[in-house]
Design a protein around this nucleic acid. Structure first.
Ligand SMILES: [Mn+2]
Ligand SMILES: [Mn+2]
Ligand SMILES: [Mn+2]
Ligand SMILES: [Mn+2]
Lengths: 221, 221
DNA sequence: AAATATTTTTAGATGAAACTAAAAATTATT
DNA sequence: AATAATTTTTAGTTTCATCTAAAAATATTT
């Protein structure tokens, strides 16, 4: 069965909202991410349920069916592989690729995406550190922690971001933060929950809680 | 002003039908290439005229305005650059790329297409020998001839094809014909207008008039 | 437990892009 | 020049994805 751009975008967003927990997703949550009204979401959820891609009961919220999750993972795979292409081969910065990948993720050609994967030498993660689902729909679990949850005195490495808006990524770049940055959490400041962090052995800088929440790290060793 | 996929496809097809001659294009001709009904074409032509991209008078046919031609050339440029990418970088055969490029041509990002052009080292022609319009909307005139019009005894080189359907391209491949093939027109056979042609100095084979019409060549020296 | 607030669904409408069937205009033929 | 054939347009529908406004269901507060 074929999928429209709109359907693919809804499935992808329901997938995103489901990551981690297992409870049902609310109509309003979907409406916010799709940038549509709740009434439009209700219509689409009925249609997706009709096609067997979601389980949906009026007023009870929605979750992906196994079939729907497979489609969503396919879109996410394409999105992230194209992002790698845009950064690695076309020379874009990590804050410039998301919007273009939003378009490219809907290109329909299995052979293209497999050839792209090979051309990029089978990357495991995208330019934002997000894992790339395998061809057969398995999303690797990377198990990173949020910088905001790291205790003072710990060393860690920046492995990813939990948000890929251009404005956030540009701020990280300004702060000299990028994938692979070696971080030393000198102090957690109780007043505003900001963290004093030394980046690549440089003198420590303040990172706000809002930013630290969206930085994913792996503890050193 | 933004363009929908449907509008872009119409403009591209009107452009294609206009190449060469200067007369107006008929509604039916457009309907055939867009794979829609004449009534649908009439609707769209009114809309395109409204936006200033075509000149259209009821019953008089249609032609592109300068603005419409610029848009069409932009789509053709993207289509052909993506085809080069698919063949040169992704390892597709020349008969496999057209359908994928039909999708990729609608990706909207000026910086992407300029970076792609650079990545491909500014190709002048696509995998079918078709010229790639410049960034500023100029289509190079290559001035090739049809193999069907070449006189017996002449040598020429295969430079392009006038049709990019997979079935035609696969036949050429089977006949060992590809871009750059050195052709010697041994004889034009009056009965069926087929041509006896030696390909790369091999013993001559028969090429039907139907095929010869769609092969573009440059006379040797 | 009632009242109130919030969320979600229904009902009805809109704009795009297609369709079919019928009418009108143009072109070709006698 | 009249008739017939063909092409093109109009009129009225359909499907998809959205919208607004109002109704219904659920959740929260008093
Ligand atoms: Mn992204
Ligand atoms: Mn990403
Ligand atoms: Mn197209
Ligand atoms: Mn081509």
């Amino acid at each position: 069965m074929s999928t429209s751009f709109a359907e693919e975008n809804y499935l992808k967003i329901i997938y995103r909202l489901s990551e981690g927990h297992t409870d049902d997703i609310s109509t309003n949550a979907v409406a916010e991410l799709t940038q549509t009204k709740a009434a439009s979401v209700t219509d689409m959820l009925r249609k997706l349920a009709e096609k067997g891609w979601v389980n949906y009961q009026k007023y009870q919220g929605v979750r992906l069916s196994p079939e729907g999750e497979k489609i969503a993972l396919g879109i996410v795979r394409k999105h992230r592989l194209w992002e790698v292409f845009l950064v690695e081969k076309m020379g874009f910065n990590w804050d410039e690729v998301h919007e273009i990948a939003e378009q490219l993720e809907h290109i329909e050609s299995d052979s293209l995406i497999e050839k792209l994967d090979e051309f990029l030498e089978f990357p495991k993660t995208d330019p934002h550190g997000d894992p790339i689902p395998s061809k057969n729909g398995v999303m690797p679990e990377l198990g990173y922690q949020h910088l905001a949850d790291i205790k003072a005195g710990k060393r860690c490495v920046l492995m990813g971001v939990a948000k890929d808006s251009a404005i956030f990524l540009q701020l990280l770049t300004k702060m000299k933060l990028s994938l692979g940055s070696a971080l030393y959490v000198q102090e957690v400041n109780a007043f505003d929950r900001s963290v004093s962090v030394s980046i690549d052995e440089a003198p420590a800088v303040f990172i706000s809680h809002e930013v630290a929440k969206n930085i994913l790290v792996k503890l050193a060793q």
